[in-house]
Design a protein around this nucleic acid. Structure first.
Lengths: 226, 226
DNA sequence: CATCGATTTAAACAAGTGTTTAAAATGAGT
DNA sequence: ACTCATTTTAAACACTTGTTTAAATCGATG
């Protein structure tokens, strides 16, 4: 104890010169961790795998982030912002007819949640967090999920002619979320029930169209005339 | 090697007397394993926990079932039959109006998948298998899921006036499954987005009603007149 | 060059996992 | 009572995990 070095919260002599890559080893660890966490989730990822991909020593994670969960927390906080504010929020807040906004957000969600490219990395992190929650889940929900859930309730409530906190409004939002989440969350099941299905971007667009049609049918029929 | 004892497939001198509980230690292991697997899933369950609950030695699992996966396979095969044939199939095959059958199967699925009682143990096993597939998943899908998926497609196809293997039919089945699975699979998310929600049986019935209404709205509107 | 804090390294640690081993106990058949 | 296959047991094994340690290296400052 009291060795003089404080792992995980060193005094912060960073940003010495040009404002760019300060402490590159730390950045490489974050980058490698994000990729592996997004691929396998928190529990199936080992600090040895992360260290190897980042060309760092096994102790690097503990030195720079305290422990594995500290590294994961930092990775997730960054990407939660990307999901919650940068990607979905602008789609939900654009000025357009509510039905069009709904269609677009369904398309965006399906493409990101089912995609495997670099742009969907934050969504894959969320996907794992949903399937196998970690102690960070509450924070993720607060930053990435609840704001969009609330906006979604406002949107669907407008379509229904009901307040955002009405039970029916919530259930409809869940019906839409459930349809969307089915494809990324139940994909191992789906792959065996319908082996021919290939989730190409075109196919994902057809699926998103269907989900929108399927949902709008109820929202229109149930609309309370104002 | 060649010790004369063949773990996992002993010669089967079982059923000596009354056809009831032959090899009670094996049965206790199966019972204990089913409970713990249903609660925590395959990977989070240790053979030590199972052995302790069954009042058996740590080596008992290996002796009677070869290895942990052998025990899990046997537990899952039993309960897959319960899910696939005993519980859902009769609901899907009853002679009634397709809409009523659909409503009833949605109710049954929601109650079982979200329940925590003894009757829903097989469904909790399936739930974990969906969220965290094991090498046994394919077998589970074949025995418990695909038959009902096919029956579901026939039912929804009849409501739509489309063949069971039409793309729209499949997408509609997925929309229904997604809405149902949302509550059990995304429950950690839901618990934080809507903390007041308590999944009582009455509430589950309201949810099932909503899912049925939500789905029927599209199925009726999209019906191809024959 | 010497100094000293920050970083990196190799090695070990402690805890947990599924599995195996060889001996002990069991119990029915002779 | 003895035999012998079956079952149970305690102990250890082999392996992986996250974490820690203490020494080595680095890098700017005096």
């Amino acid at each position: 104890m009291a060795t003089g070095v404080q792992p995980g919260q060193h005094t912060g002599a960073r940003s010495t010169a040009k404002g760019g890559a300060a402490d590159p080893k730390r950045a490489r660890l974050l980058e490698a961790a994000a990729e592996i966490f997004a691929e396998r989730g928190y529990y199936a990822t080992t600090v040895r795998d992360i260290s190897k991909r980042a060309d760092a020593n096994i102790a690097a994670v503990n030195y720079h982030f305290g422990d594995k969960l500290g590294l994961y927390t930092e990775v997730l906080r960054t990407n939660a912002r990307s999901v919650g504010q940068d990607t979905i929020r602008p789609v939900l807040e654009q000025a357009a007819a509510p039905q069009d906004v709904l269609r677009k957000v369904i398309h965006a969600l399906i493409q990101r949640m089912c995609g495997s490219g670099h742009a969907s990395l934050p969504f894959r992190l969320m996907r794992h967090e949903l399937m196998r929650p970690t102690p960070v889940l509450s924070q993720v929900v607060d930053e990435a999920m609840r704001p969009n859930y609330d906006r979604m309730r406002a949107l669907v409530g407008a379509l229904l002619g009901l307040p955002p906190d009405h039970e029916t409004t919530r259930l409809c939002v869940h019906s839409i979320m459930g349809q969307v989440l089915f494809y990324p969350l139940a994909s191992p099941l789906l792959a065996r029930l319908w082996p021919q299905l290939k989730l190409t971007p075109q196919r994902l667009d057809r699926i998103a169209d269907h989900i929108a049609d399927f949902s709008v049918a109820y929202l229109q029929a149930a609309r309370v005339r104002s």
